[in-house]
């Protein structure tokens, strides 16, 4: 009883009741979940983009048939001599296995083709003369140019990332609006109490601070719940997406933990700042 009385006394505006501890946190939780999905989508698209851009740089691969695999050095020298070629490097068997793992799984005994990666001086150069020179020297050698496709995929990943960031900005905007509306409702239902505190000598920052602390806390709590729901959702999604990003399936380490951990404090800060602004704006009408 005594404890309850003190808690009440610390809340002279009655904000525990005026600002519902269900509606606002619930809305913020839903938005935090959306923000987590958008952030994870943006991170995933970014990883794909980097991977593919790297691929686009090594835009041409040269494959020697197994019976010619002894002539790797010769092929390398030939390629490095071509004016169109900036860099030519052999692909190590380890890297090869890693590239093929999502498609073939772990097959240590499989005979791997000998592959060179070329980067042309300019992505728009025609690889046909390189192909002709090579197949004259080493019969059966194949040149495959996929730079244009990889570049398009990277552009796609970039726009997916852009959309995800736009969704994130939208979620933040809606969160600010929701907090502003909730604050205004709280102020309206406590208008008399605010005026009494004001007349008794409470400062603007005192009154605005009481609202801001309460709303910041509710928003942070809601975001914590939203982030908690996001963890299993994202783990499931990243499990589904793993083959696409060519990685090993390790959903727990693939989650954007830092982003998730930042959601509650950021939501709390947004709530706090929005409430400060809305209440101070309202208080301007009092002398």
């Amino acid at each position: 009883m005594a404890e309850r009385r003190i808690r009440r006394a610390r809340d002279p505006l009655g904000l525990k009741r005026a600002l519902s501890d269900k509606l606002l946190p619930g809305l913020v939780a839903a938005m935090a979940l959306l923000a987590a999905l958008a952030l994870a989508g943006s991170r995933g698209a970014e990883a794909l983009k980097n991977r593919w851009q790297h691929g686009a740089a090594a835009a041409v691969t040269v494959q020697l048939p197994p019976e010619q695999s002894g002539r790797m050095d010769e092929a390398l020298a030939l390629m490095r001599a071509r004016p169109e070629v900036a860099v030519a490097e052999p692909v190590s068997p380890d890297r090869m296995r890693e590239l093929l793992r999502p498609w073939l799984g772990e097959v240590p005994a499989l005979p791997l083709p000998s592959v060179l990666e070329l980067r042309l001086k300019n992505i728009n150069l025609d690889p046909a003369p390189v192909q002709r020179a090579l197949s004259e020297a080493i019969p059966g050698a194949e040149v495959e140019a996929h730079g244009i496709w990889v570049a398009r995929l990277a552009a796609l990943a970039r726009s997916v990332q852009g959309v995800a960031l736009a969704v994130l900005a939208l979620v933040i905007g809606v969160a600010v609006a929701v907090v502003a509306v909730a604050t205004r409702a709280g102020v309206a239902s406590r208008r008399q109490a605010i005026e009494i505190l004001h007349d008794l000598g409470a400062t603007q920052s005192d009154i605005a601070g009481r609202f801001a602390r309460r709303i910041g806390l509710l928003a942070a709590g809601g975001a914590l719940a939203g982030a908690a729901i996001a963890v299993p959702a994202l783990a499931a999604l990243s499990g589904l997406a793993a083959p696409l990003s060519g990685g090993v399936v390790q959903p727990w380490s693939a989650l954007p933990w830092l982003d998730l951990a930042l959601l509650p404090p950021v939501a709390g800060l947004i709530g706090w700042a929005t409430a400060q602004f809305s209440v101070r704006r309202w208080l301007r009408r009092l002398p």
Binding site: R5, A9, G14, A193, I196, L197, G201, A202, D206
Partner: peptide
């Protein structure tokens, strides 16, 4: 103004007590 207001005691015509605070907490508020 707030600092100045805190040096002024006011008895309002309509009391203006906070309805969810006890008599003690209403008096303790200033």
């Amino acid at each position: 103004l707030p600092a100045l207001r805190r040096q002024i005691g006011v008895v309002f015509q309509d009391f203006r007590l906070l309805p969810y605070l006890s008599a003690f907490d209403n008096v303790a508020l200033p």
